[in-house]
């Protein structure tokens, strides 16, 4: 199993979610974060004070997937999140030691989504 962590632009979130659902990847955690990925700073003005905003709104996705789904998931995010400008984000693929599904007590491959396509697991 792998944990895929992706940081993307907030305005690409809908496209990325659509792409993931198309790939049957449904278990996902989304957080709104701020960060800086080398893109140009935007200049904003508040009551006459001009400021450079270094931190931009980003969205972080965390997805636990079985090995067979890693490439499909990464490809879906890459394709849907890309605009071509600096600041499109990053994807990290991390190894995972163990996974438990709290409700059922299932472990590892059976606890991540998508579940293995062969074995029918009770919902």
């Amino acid at each position: 199993m792998k944990l895929i962590v992706a940081v993307i632009r907030p305005d690409r979130l809908n496209e990325v979610l659509e792409a993931l659902f198309r790939e049957d990847v449904r278990g996902i955690t989304v957080s709104r974060v701020e960060g800086h990925g080398g893109e140009l700073t935007t200049v904003e003005t508040y009551r006459g004070a001009t400021v450079k905003v270094e931190l931009h709104d980003k969205v972080r996705l965390e997805i636990g997937v079985s090995d067979a789904f890693v490439d499909a998931t990464v490809a879906a995010i890459r394709q849907a999140a890309r605009t071509g400008d600096v600041g499109d984000g990053k994807i990290f693929v991390l190894p995972v030691e163990r996974v438990y599904r709290i409700r059922t007590g299932e472990e590892d491959e059976f606890a991540v989504t998508p579940e293995p396509r062969s074995g029918e697991v009770q919902g």
Partner: peptide, 12 residues
């Protein structure tokens, strides 16, 4: 050139 819901930090 403004945002409604800034955290108020992280700007120079």
């Amino acid at each position: 050139g403004e945002q409604a819901y800034n955290r108020g930090e992280g700007a120079v």
